[in-house]
Design a protein around this nucleic acid. Structure first.
Lengths: 346, 346
DNA sequence: ATGAAAGCGCTAACAA
DNA sequence: TTGTTAGCGCTTTCAT
């Protein structure tokens, strides 16, 4: 009692195991045993220790625990854009699962910069037990470097044949196929594809998916774009010069920008032009018209990514498939192509 | 040379300072000096150490550094919903600023659960140098507990008079005032406010803002709602029973759900009903009609929050103001109130 | 059931 | 300029 007041409960977060040991009049080893539980300690001592711990607000120093155990109970997540709903949802899912499993989540955004992405990944690798790279844009050799520096590495939407790299990927090739078939059934022959970021593996998967177009007698013209709303907005004008009857964007986010620009131009969707996205972002169902898209469960993506850390061996890829969601933004191809004039002017 | 092969470069991330010291044939202290830089070490030794470090891929163990220094170079961010664009953007901003300042960012989502929020905060507090709580829903006593357990605590959108708690808040009261005045100028007298989550301080600020309504001869009816799109969608029907000519939602996210439901009901916006949101979410400009809203810079919010950690003393609140953005979703109040029938049916 | 002691990887005195 | 040593806070043998 008199002793305890000497302990100094001024900064509760800063009490160490020694403080507790001193107050409870036991060794630090015993305190440790009580705190971790499941160790043989007498009831009486347990109570004394618990009381002392509560008194000074003792909480074990995680750095010390990490140093000793060699594991930080922390995972790292790196994504090109933390504000992009797609990655934000994955992060939310992974962080929730990780917390469930007693792990913390460290994040870093790369702003689509492969170099920054690499540096962030290497930096986080020092800390974490497992590293999750979302749609990494860095080169393959660098990715292998990261793998070597990481205790455990999992990729989302990128595949790399490597013994210690795991992956969870969405089957975007199938997504494009479904979208093309859907458009074909509506009579669309001229499609423009708004491309994603240059180094995105998942963009290449989409491009591959377009190989079905030939069989469907469709022409697909790729137009450089990006992954953000404003990219879609800006790419519309060039897309229109190819006089498509339908337009598929890299993702729903981009489609949003597209719809806005088309509205400005007074082009009716889907009357004059059909528009489709990919991913089924939360707001896609709320657009007017609703956006036809290839729906992917980000929740599931996050869950699967976490599983790679906790259960599965690292190597190999888990494939996740999505489904076609038809809403109002796609409709029958117009009988007559819009006039050159209406397409080009502004 | 011959020695180095014994070092075993198998797991590069796991090499310790001892390995480097052995290979470079110096003491660990010297290695430490070289790695941290700015210490007096001869050029020749520096080279040897650097070479050895590169050879084994040495990277200092952050847990050991943290244990020694007492600081982890890490901040923590807790938010009610990591997938909510508002918080995702704040997170993006804070994480970017923190990285700039050589800090890592630990995140946790609370799913709007005050209890989970408290536990996450206390847990992160063990680790981090600074803790950022976004729109915390937990009770004031608990918040003080967290403050006591944290090295440094900053709140976004919540104020608490406490010597060691800093805050960055948006002036939502002003936002509501601007919105009300705007609607008044359009002749709106009957407004429904779709309330945010029960424990949100920022919701209470909004409610206070509505005190201007009286002077403007407006009636404001609050209707319980929430912070998510689906909340807005679900709350519309009850809102309509009050026969408003305008509707203000807790945030833009909610407004999106509102617009969708109104479209389903065939109610014209803004012809029959005006709708306004708060925050100016990225997609708000892309809706049809565009959403009138009180715009807040999340980027600035993130930047200011980070500044609280790096420069300012903790206590006190920084106020951030926003601006009215008028788009198509608000218009003149309809001459005649919609008939009871049309409002109630369905 | 409990304590003493070693040591995780690193850095900061203090010596030399 | 470089090495030796102590110790950050904790857990885990190994004794007792």
């Amino acid at each position: 009692m008199s002793k305890s007041s000497r302990g100094g409960a001024l900064s509760p977060g800063r009490a160490t195991i020694h403080d507790v040991a001193r107050i409870a009049e036991v060794s630090t080893a015993t305190v440790s045993r009580v705190m971790s539980g499941g160790k043989p300690v007498s009831a009486e001592v347990t109570d004394r220790v618990r009381a002392a711990a509560r008194e000074v607000g003792y909480r074990p120093n995680p750095a010390a625990q990490t140093l000793l155990r060699g594991r930080s109970q922390t995972i790292g997540v790196v994504a090109p854009d933390l504000a992009n709903p797609y990655f934000a949802e994955i992060l939310k899912g992974v962080a929730a699962e990780a917390a469930e499993g007693g792990h913390h989540t460290l994040v870093a955004g790369s702003d689509e910069d492969p170099d920054r992405e690499y540096r962030s990944a290497m930096e986080l690798a020092r800390w974490v037990d497992g590293l999750l790279l979302c749609a990494p844009r860095m080169s393959t050799p660098r990715l292998k470097e990261v793998a070597a520096a990481s205790r455990s590495l999992v990729l989302i939407n990128r595949i790399l044949r490597h013994p210690s790299i795991g992956a969870v990927v969405v089957d975007y090739q199938e997504g494009i196929r479904l979208l093309c078939e859907h458009l074909a059934s509506l009579g669309h022959q001229r499609i423009v594809y708004l491309e994603g970021p240059p180094n995105a593996w998942s963009d290449r998967q989409r491009q591959r998916g377009f190989r079905v177009a030939e069989a469907l007698k469709q022409t697909v013209t790729p137009v450089p774009c990006g992954s953000a709303m404003r990219d879609g907005y800006s790419a519309v004008d060039e897309a229109l010069t190819h006089q498509p009857t339908a337009l598929i964007a890299f993702n729903d986010h981009v489609s949003l920008g597209v719809l806005t620009r088309l509205r400005e131009l007074g082009i009716d969707v889907p009357g004059e032009l059909s528009v489709a996205g990919i991913d089924d972002a939360p707001m896609s169902a709320h657009m007017d018209p609703g956006l036809t898209t290839f729906a992917v469960s980000t929740v599931e993506l996050g869950r699967l990514a976490w599983q790679r850390f906790s259960s599965d061996p690292a190597a190999g890829a888990t494939h996740l498939s999505g489904e076609l969601v038809v809403r109002g933004s796609t409709g029958p191809a117009p009988r007559r192509r819009r006039s050159q004039a209406s397409a080009a002017k502004r």
